[in-house]
């Protein structure tokens, strides 16, 4: 059996760079979508907001400043090759150290509190991260990471729909969630949708969906069509850039699915602001 040894230091450095990069450099999928929205936007104020966002993203890139002051809670999706052995430390510590170094050395905001209800004391280095690990066949580690801001995270919702709700029930719940969010999650937003699995798997799919570039579609044409339909419907809501009115309420809708139980059809909607930050690296 061929194993591959990866040094813990390499994991730390990779994670550090990913979190710094995702907070300074927005993806071209988002920039293209913002430019496209600017072309089509009918509201003068909306157009003004969109050009400010494009200008903001240029400043962040050129000066390596955080795109948004909310540099997020650190989320990682890891595909861990089963032939990889770590030398010089352990995986979890190496990842957390990467997060710590990114947020401290990169002048990113530390936004994590130690306890959700009682203490709420800032951990001062943005740890712990939220780490989702899949063990896959192979001898590499793939990281897809993002800083998730909570202005939009708070607007997210999950519902345990049952099979008789059908396609329309899914669409209605997603639109209802976006409608409730209104101007709050920094539109134009990215809507991540998870359908299927169990309660927790469904939420995870929705998060994964927000990490998928918005210039891609679900490989199943029925879901790809649903993504397009939802995007059109959301852009008819009128919230517009910053919620000040207009045609650009969402930049993209991504759907991820998983098989589910005979009795269920869970749907999760994870809302992300226009600052949909994610970066990927393979070591």
């Amino acid at each position: 059996m061929n194993i591959r040894i990866i040094n813990a230091q390499e994991i730390t450095q990779t994670v550090k760079k990913l979190f710094m990069d995702c907070n300074f450099f927005i993806g071209t999928d988002i920039t293209d979508a913002l430019q496209n929205a600017w072309q089509k936007e009918q509201s003068p104020v909306g157009k003004q907001v969109l050009s400010q966002l494009l200008e903001n993203n240029e400043i962040a890139k050129n000066e390596q400043l955080p795109l948004c002051q909310d540099t997020g809670m650190s989320v990682l999706f890891v595909e861990y090759g089963d032939k990889v052995v770590i030398d010089g430390g352990n995986f979890k510590d190496a990842v957390e150290e990467g997060v710590r170094q990114a947020y401290c050395d990169g002048y990113l905001r530390k936004s994590v509190v130690s306890d959700p209800v009682f203490d709420r004391i800032n951990t001062k280095d943005n740890t712990p991260a939220v780490i989702h690990t899949d063990i896959v066949a192979g001898d590499t580690i793939k990281f897809t990471v993002g800083g998730k801001g909570f202005g939009s995270e708070n607007m997210s919702a999950i519902k345990m729909l049952t099979p008789s709700y059908g396609e329309q029930g899914v669409i209605d719940f997603i639109l209802e969630t976006v409608e409730k969010a209104g101007p709050n999650p920094c539109p134009p937003m990215v809507v991540g949708v998870g359908i299927g699995g169990t309660f927790e798997q469904c939420a995870l799919l929705a998060k994964k969906a927000t990490f998928r570039p918005i210039n891609t579609s679900n490989p199943d044409s029925r879901y790809a069509q649903m993504e397009n339909h939802l995007l059109q419907e959301i852009n008819k809501m009128g919230f517009g850039p910053a919620g000040l009115g207009g045609n650009s309420t969402a930049l993209g809708v991504n759907i991820e699915t998983y098989p589910t139980h005979i009795a269920g059809m869970p749907v999760a909607v994870n809302i992300c602001c226009h600052c949909a930050r994610h970066k990927t690296a393979i070591i």
Partner: peptide, 22 residues
């Protein structure tokens, strides 16, 4: 309503956009 990111050296403030008011 703002919680800024830390200022880099030679900067007065870090990034400092608004947070949700509700």
């Amino acid at each position: 309503y703002v919680g800024p990111s830390p200022a880099k050296p030679n900067y007065t403030v870090g990034s400092a956009g608004p947070t949700s008011s509700y």
